[in-house]
Nucleic acid binder design. Structure first.
Lengths: 174, 174
DNA sequence: CATGCGAGTTCACTGACTGAACCACTGCTG
DNA sequence: CAGCAGTGGTTCAGTCAGTGAACTCGCATG
């Protein structure tokens, strides 16, 4: 858990990455940060993660330079992805693609589009309409055909992230 | 650990994927399978993973259809990636890319090439020489500029996987 | 001053991981 | 055919990390 090597293989960048984001909950926290979640309480309610674990993960991610911790405009604390954190998008996307392919028979659970022209993104993150590799802030996520509305979450945070929205745009308090 | 949801969010393919490959050690086992490791003992010695954990992970991955378990030609048991398992390559590659980018200042630890023409692969898996998206069995992995020979591993399995080789090609006993 | 809220911390409990030792089966080998 | 080594596990006690509920702290508001 602490910095000094949790995995032995010093020559493997996969192992090195997993030391940072490979623990339980960590990538879901990062995913929520992409979805615009910034507040401690919002992470906690949406993920139903024990607060002690959340506190530890957030501290570690800040220490690793994946998130920043600042006092937000509204007075509370805000956690946001750094540039290094945003670079985790291909990782998140690859994992989502695999889950959609093998565990979502009725189609992707969340569709990913280029917000400028509405084009779907392929597996490499390229817009099928304009052909460009879409930068993360221009990506829109919305429920796809495999999305199950019966399970869309009753808390306001889940409702917000299940509404079509751009990545990184902050979810707004009710 | 068992199948019934370890994460709450039923509408997230990321969570679903992490239920399969998100536990400690699991992706390193898969990585080794890409590198041609097939035998129980070889996984154990290269990863220095407790044998009980390895046994549990292998059983689970077989159950999930990521690996197959067969009696090999040489008489022992062989674990191999299924087509579904091979589809995890983009995940492994994305994680390695991020680790190389942020934790390997002197360059990638392992270079990934198209074995047919020697072209380097970009982040989307496309060959810079011939321009095609390279299928996994045609990918060659070799030590890159960030590779540290002082730490290249003394056991025969590590030596084998630190030698340039095609993915999925079985490592041969000494 | 009471109330409430956000952001954590504390704590007892449980479950998972660790490492070492042990077991079972196979195929030799003398 | 007894002994032995190799492979593929299982068992077990000790430790460590995750869980969930309750609690604390600081700050703003009424």
């Amino acid at each position: 858990m602490t910095l000094p090597s949790t995995y032995a293989d010093r020559n493997c960048s996969l192992a090195r990455t997993l030391e940072v984001v490979g623990e339980r909950w960590t990538l879901l926290i990062v995913r929520n940060a992409f979805y615009g979640v910034r507040r401690f309480g919002d992470f906690a309610t949406q993920l139903k993660i024990p607060r002690a674990v959340l506190a530890g993960r957030l501290k570690f991610l800040v220490q690793e330079g994946v998130l920043t911790r600042d006092d937000g405009a509204a007075g509370g604390v805000e956690y946001r992805l750094t540039a290094k954190g945003v670079e985790l998008w291909p990782v998140v996307r690859a994992l989502m693609n695999w889950g959609d392919a093998f565990y979502s028979p009725s189609g992707v659970r969340r569709a990913v589009r280029h917000d400028e022209d509405g084009g779907l993104l392929d597996h490499e993150g390229r817009c099928e309409t304009c052909g460009s590799v879409v930068p993360v802030p221009e990506i829109r996520v919305e429920p796809g055909p495999g999305f199950d509305p019966a399970d869309s979450g009753l808390d306001p945070v889940s409702s917000a992230i299940n509404t079509p929205r751009r990545l990184l745009e902050p979810i707004t308090a009710p």
